[in-house]
Design a binder for these strands. Structure first.
Length: 434
RNA sequence: GUGCCCUUAGCUCAAUUGGCAGAGCGCUUGACUGUGGCUCAAGAGGUUACGGGUUCGAGACCCGUAGGGCACCCCA
């Protein structure tokens, strides 16, 4: 029997990571709530067509990175094609439309947390299954909505101790000015088409904007003097962008205008951004997002503006781990219940169970190990106290309580032990949890 | 999808020009038969990623596959 291994690009997150992970996700949730976001959980599986339509057929994500399969229909007929979500936004928009969230107070501010799947070649901090924190503001064209999305991202990373944060920001215009710019870009690049890198020649036809952030050596020289989209924005888009930048200036949020930033998803309009940080190797982006005013209508909903972003949890965890940021310890039982003998084992199991029913954490040994081994476990698990029930205690109806830190012990009646446990352990559990 | 590098115990790594597969940590047990940390001792744990080939002999050399790392592409 061959040993099973995790699927390529997918990894186990082991218990020792729990404290750090809940530190990060806890911060994300707390900031989302501070900004007035509510949680929405959508399925991991969606119709392939949703992503093809929403994200765009010609994007890298849809054209080569999706985990898709044909579902079974009735009577063995072939059903529809389903896909493991490669991003959050399309699914959240589907849910917004399907559940009539457009008839609730607008805008709807929604956050999500969960796994995302992209079938890329794995690399450091690039996995085929990874976790994202996602936030969307749906139903407002106000630049303040853009600002709040940027600020959620910024606040999250600031609070987790990131240094040298910087937004890369650009505007990709709207359905009126974006095509004008694309035409201008195509016209500018057309004479050089033969000299561009093959992939870029292809992009020029299918998705001209993507030529902009090309890193192909042959292409780069021709990009330097390419027209800039900011020069082609119509009045509305320019005003929107300038208002957003004005807020960022006023708040002292660092950003760099990056006119080559277009991002790989078709649905973006107006604002696009990425937040860059240190310690990520070739993966500069901690998180990214932008505005998608046409998406909901494209997916069959009422014309509705929206803006959002997604952050990669693994990338955040990696960086703060490297910076040696310690996460607060998670609460754990302070008491270890040890026993000797079968009869005492029953009493010990009952004792531990009763404590837990009263909300007090307790750990108990399995497998009838020696007292010595039980004490070693108690120490290893960081328990402060050991309650021992052996033949003597069983006969006397008592419990021997040892304080490991002070190497002191005393024998108490069951009643006295119960009082001690409620007084000492319930308060300490609460203290650890807080 | 492309290029380069890597893969030996649960983990981190040794093993002379091809010549008996090892250490530390961790784990289990024990060191006055009711008591932890520290120390000491013993034990368990391996198809050397997988499949072929060369050789008297392969962890080592050759080919293939898988997985990992780094970079490209793109992004979280």
């Amino acid at each position: 029997m061959p040993r099973f291994k995790s699927v390529k690009g997918m990894q186990d997150i082991l218990p020792e990571k729990e404290a750090l992970w809940s530190h990060v996700t806890g911060a994300a949730v707390s900031i989302a709530r501070r900004f007035g976001f509510a949680k929405i959980d959508t399925p991991v599986l969606e119709a392939t067509a949703l992503f093809a339509r929403g994200v765009g057929e010609d994007t890298d994500i849809v054209s080569k990175e999706m985990y898709s399969f044909m579902d079974r229909g009735r009577d063995g007929e072939q059903g529809e094609s389903l896909t493991l979500r490669p991003e959050f936004t399309a699914g959240v928009m589907r849910a917004y439309i399907e559940n009539g969230l457009s008839s609730r107070p607008q805008p709807q501010k929604l956050y999500s947390l969960g796994p995302i799947f992209r079938r890329e070649r794995p690399q450091k901090l690039r996995y085929r299954q990874f976790n994202q924190f996602n936030a969307e503001i749906i139903g407002s064209p106000d630049p303040v909505a853009d600002l709040e999305i940027l600020l959620v991202a910024y606040t999250l990373h600031r609070e987790l101790g990131f240094k040298n944060l910087n937004f890369q920001i650009n505007s990709t215009g709207d359905p009126e000015c974006k095509p004008r710019y694309i035409e201008a870009l195509k016209a500018y690049l057309a004479p050089y088409a033969g000299k561009l890198a093959p992939t870029d020649r292809d992009r020029l036809q299918r998705n001209p904007l993507r030529v902009l952030d090309s890193k192909e050596r042959e292409t780069l020289p021709y990009l330097a003097d390419a027209p800039r989209i900011l020069d082609y924005l119509n009045d509305e888009c320019r005003a929107h962008f300038n208002e957003l930048l004005g807020y960022l200036d006023a708040l002292g949020v660092p950003y760099t205008l990056n006119h080559k930033l277009v991002r790989g998803l078709d649905y973006y309009t107006k604002t696009v951004f990425e937040l860059w940080g240190e310690g990520l190797g070739a993966q500069a982006a901690l998180c990214g997002g932008g505005r998608y005013d046409g998406l909901i209508e494209l997916l069959g909903g009422p014309p509705t503006p929206g803006v959002g972003f997604a952050a990669g949890i693994e990338r955040i965890v990696h960086v703060i781990e490297e910076q040696g940021v310690g996460a607060p310890a998670l609460p754990q039982p302070r008491l270890f219940v040890a026993y000797q003998g079968d009869a005492a084992k029953q009493a010990a199991v009952a004792l531990a169970s009763n404590l837990r029913l009263r909300g007090i954490g307790a750990r108990i040994a399995f497998d009838g190990r020696s007292l010595k081994a039980q004490f070693r476990d108690a120490d290893r698990y960081g328990c402060a106290y050991v309650a021992v029930i052996g033949p003597d205690e069983l006969a006397a109806g008592s419990v021997t309580l040892r304080d490991l830190a002070h190497s002191a012990q005393q024998t108490l009646s069951r009643e006295a032990f119960g009082v001690w446990a409620i007084q000492t352990l319930s308060s300490q559990d609460a203290a650890t949890a807080a």
